[in-house]
Amino acid sequence: MNPTTTALRAGWSRGLIELRQSLTNAGDLLNHFLWPVLMLIVTYFVRDVSFGDTGFELGTLVLPSILGMNSAMAMVTMSQLLTAEREDGTLLRAKATPNGMAGYFTGKIVFVSFGLIVDLAIFLIPGLLIVPGLSVGSADAWLTLIWVLALGLVATLPIGAVLGSIFASTRSQGLIMLPMMAMIATSGIFYPVTSLPDWVQWFAQIFPVYWLGLGMRSALLPDSAVTVEIGDSWRHLETIGVLGAWAVLGLVLAPIVLRRMARRESGSTVAERREKALQRVG
């Protein structure tokens, strides 16, 4: 069998094993439920709040937007995992095996992607009971949700890998959250972006968070809800274009950055990081 194929199959198995461990470990299971539950609480309290004179409740608009936001957070998860496992030597051990890096990254993609699907299901299933007015009875709605999610993962996971290669330690990962929160706040997740100033709308449209939210809204909201969007349109072609551009950028940059990062990894660098961590604890 081709060595690369063997490595990819091993990575697939590794990702599924890590996912199973995550879903059977009390601490990890709590992490899977915590964020979706918090978002359900937010959705519950805005479910009856009307948005202007549109006739739509804010909760109806927010629920699919949160799905898009959570999809974008896969970028942060990938970055955090890569930084943590580079710091503890897991990445170095993968590097030491034939085609180990290909298997390692395949495993991470599988783990993060399927873990995200679990998190989205935890939020969406009870959310459908809380929020009325969603259009979930057609195959088109679910097909749109699937292609938006798939394209969103291709757009965000490579960027997450690049960020994880740049940050030197898990302590520095907190720097990601500030710009991430700024993107979420300006991307129309918790309030339609058309209610924000024009310059904020232009800023939001640069990044994947807005387009993932828009794509999810186009999947789960009735056609009449398009009136709250920019240009009164779901803009599927623009969604494909922007997310596709981020995907191309990530897929070009990620192999270059990851190869350079892997070349720098050695036993001495791992030991140095461990020493610094012990000094901070001490």
Rank of each mutant, 00 (worst) to 15 (best):
G11H: 07
G11Y: 07
W12P: 02
S13L: 15
S13T: 09
R14C: 10
G15W: 08
L16R: 12
I17P: 00
E18S: 03
E18G: 01
R20V: 08
S22W: 13
L23P: 06
L23M: 10
T24P: 07
T24W: 02
T24K: 07
N25L: 09
N25P: 02
G27P: 00
G27K: 09
L29R: 05
L29N: 03
L29Y: 01
L30W: 14
L30Y: 14
H32I: 07
H32K: 07
H32E: 13
F33S: 06
F33H: 02
L34I: 14
W35S: 13
P36C: 03
V37F: 10
V37A: 09
I41T: 03
I41P: 08
V42Q: 01
T43S: 10
Y44S: 14
F45L: 14
F45H: 06
V46I: 12
V46N: 07
R47L: 12
D48W: 07
D48C: 05
V49N: 06
V49C: 04
S50R: 14
S50L: 15
S50M: 13
G52E: 15
D53W: 00
D53K: 06
T54H: 05
T54F: 08
G55A: 01
G55D: 01
F56N: 10
F56C: 10
F56H: 01
L58P: 02
L58Q: 09
G59E: 08
T60I: 03
L63E: 09
L63K: 06
P64V: 06
P64A: 12
S65E: 06
S65F: 03
S65D: 06
I66R: 10
I66C: 05
I66T: 05
L67R: 00
L67F: 01
L67G: 13
N70Y: 05
S71E: 04
A72H: 12
A72G: 09
A72W: 14
M73R: 13
A74C: 13
M78V: 15
M78S: 08
M78F: 15
M78L: 11
S79Y: 06
S79R: 00
S79K: 11
Q80H: 11
Q80R: 13
Q80M: 15
L81H: 10
L81W: 02
L82G: 07
L82W: 01
L82S: 13
A84L: 09
A84V: 00
R86F: 07
R86C: 07
E87W: 10
D88W: 11
D88K: 05
L91N: 03
L91M: 11
L91K: 05
L92M: 06
R93K: 08
R93D: 04
A94Y: 09
K95E: 13
T97Y: 14
T97L: 15
P98L: 12
N99S: 10
N99C: 04
G100S: 08
G100K: 00
G100W: 12
G103F: 06
G103D: 08
G103Q: 07
T106W: 04
T106I: 03
G107P: 00
K108T: 13
F114T: 09
G115R: 11
L116G: 11
I117F: 10
I117R: 07
